[in-house]
Design a protein around this nucleic acid. Structure first.
Lengths: 204, 204
DNA sequence: TACTATAATTGACACCGTCAATTGACATTG
DNA sequence: CAATGTCAATTGACGGTGTCAATTATAGTA
């Protein structure tokens, strides 16, 4: 290990570090995610992570993108559970997978949707990863729109869908919605709202 | 100042510290909110805040409760802008004030709805302050329900309302919704959803 | 005026992110 | 094969953080 590392090797070391970091984050919380702790977990020395990430901020941003790609993969897999003609069921499955991911990985979910500073925009890669995630639901939405089933343009409905589910997950994982029962109630109420308010033919 | 301070004096010093802390938080961000920085801002010495809060965590929790009471006050004031018979307009005004507060005080808004650790529940006072805030909208909701205007129990509709607006504000202040135009669109779409999906007579 | 209770400050420590200097292991070259 | 050079990796050092413990300052009382 003295000559220059190949970019594959670098990528591999980066993803190893990212995975360890995500693990620490989810099991011990954000406060425990320190560069020194990560180094220890990965069995390297204090400063080694700085060879692969210029900052802690850059590390965390890479974690966001990795987390998002996991979320997107989960949604895609869920969508594959229904034929593409049945876009209503696909949407339901996507929403279900989205919520499940948020509840199962609360710390990662939170990180993924919390850029560094509120006033400055997220990194371009981060934004791109978010749009890729939203695109998963947009495809069946567009099919629904093409069939004349929506009262709104598909991207707008998708945004409403997203905002409602995001708010729901956030409030639940922060324990601001007290118990699982009311959570499930709100969840089904949101589904009901979208179906009744927007998807015309679903009312028949 | 040598004999024991009265509880009024203690309260006053506490609120002074809290106000300075909220100011630092909103103008310079969470990272700048350090105990030493707060002490400097308040013109006292390093350790003085610890005379009035056992922890930084306790200080921050007090900030949450103070922030929530400002939010609740803003919503109440907004609701007073319409007669109590006109609960539909009251709800609109409350939602508007809620969103405005979130956009105008993003850091405080975020803090207020972000308890310490996701797995453990928020402090009882914090939870009580949140319920007090939600109660503002529940009163007109209950009137609407009493008039048979709702398709759902008022508290359930209120939770959906809350989740949707919370998600919207969160995504916007994190700059995950790109511009003000799409933000306003989603906002009005949410209003539209609730009106069309749940409030029967609003469709006439 | 001397004493005492307590508000307020200062000293010290472990931990943090990170810059800079050092060490160590390999590939090349004479 | 030994010397050299290049980079990966480690260790040293610094300022900043939260916070415990010891100290100082101040005001009411005897």
């Amino acid at each position: 290990m003295s000559r220059q590392l190949s970019s594959e090797e670098i990528d591999e070391k980066r993803t190893t570090l990212i995975d360890h970091a995500l693990c620490i984050l989810e099991t011990e919380g954000l406060a425990a995610l320190t560069v020194r702790r990560l180094a220890e977990e990965a069995g390297v020395s204090r400063q080694t992570p700085y060879l692969y990430f210029k900052d802690k901020a850059e590390l965390v941003d890479a974690m966001r993108i990795a987390g998002l790609s996991k979320l997107t993969a989960a949604s895609l897999e869920a969508a594959a559970g229904a034929p593409s003609e049945n876009y209503v069921e696909q949407l339901r499955l996507i929403g279900e997978a989205y919520v499940r991911f948020g509840l199962d990985n609360p710390a990662v979910y939170k990180l993924v949707f919390t850029p560094i500073r509120p006033d400055e925009p997220p990194s371009p890669e981060h934004m791109k990863a978010i749009e890729a995630n939203r695109a998963v639901a947009e495809i069946p939405m567009q099919k629904a729109a093409a069939d004349g089933m929506l009262n709104l343009p598909p991207d707008r409905l998708n945004h409403v869908f997203w905002a409602a589910l995001h708010g729901l997950i956030t409030l639940r994982t922060e324990n601001l919605i007290d118990n699982d029962e009311t959570f499930e109630q709100i969840r089904s109420d949101i589904e009901f709202t979208l179906a009744n308010g927007f998807i015309n033919k679903a009312r028949d």
